[in-house]
Write a protein that binds this DNA or RNA. Structure first.
Length: 559
RNA sequence: GCGCCAAUAGCUCAGCUGGAUAGAGCAACGGCCUUCUAAGCCGUAGGUCGCAGGUUCGAAUCCUGCUUGGCGCACCA
């Protein structure tokens, strides 16, 4: 906001320097404007002089003194006295900008006008992005790992919406195949078991109690009428329906709504699978060996070729995966984002190779891989195993710590990092718990407004507030932080990194708590100052609310 | 054996395209409530950024090798 104004000014001065023959345009767009870490280094700092010196040296072979370049640059930069109070040269040639204190309040007007869209960009014209996530096959309730993925995917989708994309959320699943047959057999075994009949539980069957519940529901509905059914498919169907209902309930509870559920089956029914194979065959990228069909992935930088159709005639997971992504392309998305768990990494190169082979631009697909989650209870890791069904479901997790904590905690780490979820901390009602800290911040601001009414110090019209009264470093810092929000959202969206929103919110809430403790917003003896501060607080609360919205966490009015 | 990810304070982690003396939060220690929620704030202490080289004005960040942990490496998904 303020920064982009400065950015423009710096660029125009850079161009002036080029026009005056002070330096060439070689360094254009390669220098950066950043926020220095230390006090005394200004509000922003620019490394242009060093970059220019470097480029000039490369071009001419002559040594160029960065500080000298900085001096020339600063001569030009100084002229904007509306924006800048002071420009200094420091260190090896950094240019430090000290903004005119009055500039910061500009952002408040923007927040006031844009309100619940502050920080978000206008719709991009026709830019469609598809975010695929969760995509769990209906073999059991959503577990912790799916939870991280669900929250990550949904928040990424929210971020992309915030920067103007038309976003669609998609869930891809497969209700055929071996896993599902095992599910059917497991259900059947439990059914017979509950009826007191002899049964053989599959060796690799699903041992979770939910299978027993499903079996019981079959008994409730149809009694023992299915005893002689030999087709596990019937059991599979019932189990699948029940489990999907459960998954759907969990997702709804998490505030996540998918636009599409894409069933792998479609790919077979519509003949896309055969189509892809024949296209690849025509291109000479497919061959037969040992009764199986192989895809020449080695031609796309991989170690070896991979089987796409088993000798049994059944495709391996790669083929439908490639095919599915081809369908995404055909549906015309500008960008496709896949959220996968780290265990699915092996499919990524295969899909990319497949798409490239089919003539699509694979760079339009971005895969976000997230590492696993470890649950910690009393400082010890909670051991989980899917097969033994000792896993913790998302529903159980939400029951224990609440949805807001679940969402917030899953976003506290970047996707690349393993995530340690501390159940004790998540339940804490105090500043040790980051969700609580941020939400309490929001609630605390809001209560000032109700108090304001009681004390007869109301904010009045925004246009009548005198923000020149806000001169405290803390006040300016809050305005600066508010002003940085839109760029933060842009960056977090571009890098698919919702955890940055979390860090920002913790920081902003921290600034608020500090201010709240140090100064009083409401002072009947200083009405004008109180009004300005009230408006500052109103804007702050809106940014907290908008930020929490991006990660799907509620912003309570009181706690 | 090969590939991907990670390695930063006692613990959990930030650090965006390399930037100036390394950042939070917890935990530890010491303070702050007659005033808008102390569900909070302030202060102190804490670091060879896994190890070794290299690239350059400048490296936690980029390159190479190594060590440790996680996940993969199927005619499972």
């Amino acid at each position: 906001m303020i920064k982009s104004q400065l950015q423009q000014w710096v660029e125009s001065c850079f161009d002036k320097g080029v026009a005056q023959g002070l330096w060439s345009s070689a360094a254009a767009n390669s220098y950066v404007l950043e926020e220095p870490k230390h006090e005394g280094q200004g509000d922003y700092a620019c490394n242009a002089a060093m970059i220019i010196a470097g480029r000039e040296k490369k071009a001419t072979g002559k040594k160029v003194n960065p500080r000298k370049v900085a001096e020339q640059f600063v001569e030009l930069l100084r002229l904007n006295t509306d924006l800048l109070a002071k420009v200094e040269i420091a260190g090896p040639g950094f240019i430090n900008f000290f903004m005119h204190p009055s500039v910061w309040a500009q952002v408040l007007a923007v927040v006031d006008t844009e309100d619940n869209t502050f920080g978000f960009a206008a719709k991009k014209y026709g830019q469609r992005v598809l975010v695929e996530f969760v995509s769990a096959n209906p073999t059991g309730p959503l577990s912790i790992g799916h939870g991280r993925q669900a929250v990550l995917g949904d928040s990424i989708a929210r971020l992309l919406e915030a920067v103007g994309y038309d976003v669609e959320r998609e869930y891809y699943y497969n209700d055929a195949g071996r896993q599902m047959r095992v599910l059917g057999a497991s259900t059947q075994a439990r059914y017979l078991e509950l009826l007191g009949e002899e049964s053989q539980f599959p060796e690799d069957g699903y041992q979770g109690d939910y299978i027993r519940d499903i079996a019981q529901s079959i008994i409730d509905d149809q009694g023992d009428g299915m005893q002689d059914v030999t087709d596990v498919l019937l059991f599979k169907k019932v189990a699948e329906k029940a489990i999907f209902k459960d998954i759907d309930g969990t997702l709804t509870r998490m505030g996540i709504k998918f636009d599409h559920y894409y069933n792998e089956h479609t790919l077979y029914d519509d003949g896309h699978i055969d189509e892809v194979v024949s296209i690849l065959r025509d291109k000479g990228l497919v061959y037969e060996k040992d009764d199986a069909t192989w895809f020449k992935t080695s031609e796309f930088g991989q170690e070896k070729d991979r089987v796409i159709i088993k000798s049994s005639g059944e495709p391996t997971y790669r083929l439908p995966d490639i095919c599915y992504h081809r369908e995404k392309f055909k549906r015309g998305y500008d960008w496709m984002v896949d959220i996968f768990g780290a265990d699915h990494i092996a499919t990524v190169p295969d899909v990319m190779a497949g798409l490239t082979a089919l003539g699509y631009d694979a760079s339009k697909v971005t895969v976000v891989l997230h590492q696993f989650v470890t649950l910690m209870r009393d400082g010890k890791q909670v051991k989980m195993s899917t097969r033994k069904a000792t896993f913790v479901t998302i529903d159980e997790l939400i029951d224990e710590v609440g949805l807001d904590a679940v969402r917030f905690f899953f976003l506290m780490r970047k996707a690349d990092s393993q995530l340690e979820f501390d159940l004790e901390v998540a339940k804490e009602e105090g500043k040790e718990n980051p969700v609580f800290y941020v939400q309490y911040g929001h609630a605390r601001v809001r209560t000032i407004f109700t108090k304001a009414v009681e004390k007869g110090v109301e904010p009045g019209d925004f246009s009548e507030a005198d923000f020149s009264l806000l001169t405290l470093p803390e006040e300016l810092k809050i305005m600066k932080a508010i002003g940085a929000f839109p760029a933060l959202v842009q960056g977090a969206a571009a890098d698919l990194a919702p955890h940055r929103i979390v860090f920002y919110l913790r920081d902003l809430a921290g600034q608020f708590h500090h201010f709240y403790n140090e100064y009083r917003v409401l002072d009947p003896d200083q009405v004008a100052l109180s009004r300005a501060r009230l408006w500052l607080m109103i804007c702050l609360s809106k940014v907290l609310r908008n930020g929490l919205g991006l990660i799907g966490v509620s912003a309570p009015e009181s706690m």
